[in-house]
């Protein structure tokens, strides 16, 4: 199963207006790894993610997903391998009902109706939203929308899950449910986020991006304990690692 790697080599992307969003990024992600991509707003996270599902093709450098280099010709296969979960579930849930939305991908794959049905049901059960099947998406809560968005991607049976801010706009309980859900998946996961506490729960490895380049790439705990690195990258140590004075009884000192 070693072929499910994501390999980015010296990737550079310049937007038409001259903004250089990504400048020479390289990294390798192995099968089953769970990697966080963190960085300030505008650091280039979104541009990087857009390369991973082939929305943007590399202007310079290369992106390899599994056995395929990302080119116009392989983009369809790559999209079957990489499942992308968007920041705003409203962008991802565009069909009239939850069922139609989850069935959208499998139907596009040309699967027979029975197989579509199995995949939809399976995806809905895995994200614990089978009861929402016939509901229109605008009637769902934030957490439900997120779960359905994940189900739409799971129904495509991807090997790699790419997520953009999965925990944004969720209330604490919905966020917790989501983290538990994601922890249960054995996919290769790439999560772009500002939620560093969630990174602690889900990702053993973290890549820090700053102004289009990689500042650091290593075990999550090492990175989160490097105060200087975090400050330079406009980040903050997660609350859980800050040694809360009240809990630790150090308030009096």
């Amino acid at each position: 199963m070693s072929h499910h790697i994501v390999e980015v080599t010296d990737l550079t992307h310049t937007y038409p207006d001259g903004t250089m969003a990504v400048r020479g990024i390289s990294f390798r992600i192995h099968h089953g790894e769970s990697v966080a991509v963190v960085g300030a707003n505008g650091a280039g996270k979104s541009t990087l993610l857009l390369h991973l599902n082939g929305y943007l093709t590399p202007q310079h450098g290369s992106v390899r997903i599994g056995d395929f280099p990302l080119t116009k010709a392989t983009v369809q296969d790559i999209r079957k391998t990489v499942g992308m979960i968007f920041q705003d579930p409203d962008d991802q849930l565009f069909m009239p009902t939850v069922y139609d939305d989850v069935a959208f991908g499998p139907l596009n794959l040309g699967l027979p109706p029975e197989e579509v049905e199995i995949r939809v049901q399976d995806a809905l059960v895995r994200t614990a939203v089978a009861h929402l099947r016939e509901r229109p998406p605008y009637k769902l809560s934030g957490g439900e929308k997120r779960a359905v968005a994940i189900a739409t991607v799971l129904a495509m049976t991807p090997d790699i899950l790419v997520m953009d801010e999965p925990s944004s706009n969720l209330d604490p309980r919905a966020r917790r449910t989501l983290i538990e859900l994601l922890a249960g998946f054995h996919h290769t996961k790439i999560i772009a986020t500002h939620d560093l506490d969630m990174v602690l729960d889900l990702c053993e490895r973290t890549i820090v991006i700053h102004e289009g380049t990689i500042m650091a790439d290593g075990p999550t705990l090492d990175i989160f304990n490097d105060m200087e690195l975090l400050a330079r990258s406009h980040l903050e140590k997660p609350f859980r690692l800050q040694g809360c004075p009240i809990c630790s009884g150090e308030l009096s000192r």
């Binding site: 968007f86 962008d91 959208f104 109706p113 739409t152």
Partner: peptide
């Protein structure tokens, strides 16, 4: 963004609804 989301799930210009 919606278009991108559609592309990610194999959209090829035809919307298929099974009903």
């Amino acid at each position: 963004r919606i278009h991108l989301a559609m592309l990610c799930r194999g959209f090829d210009g035809t919307i298929r609804i099974q009903r």
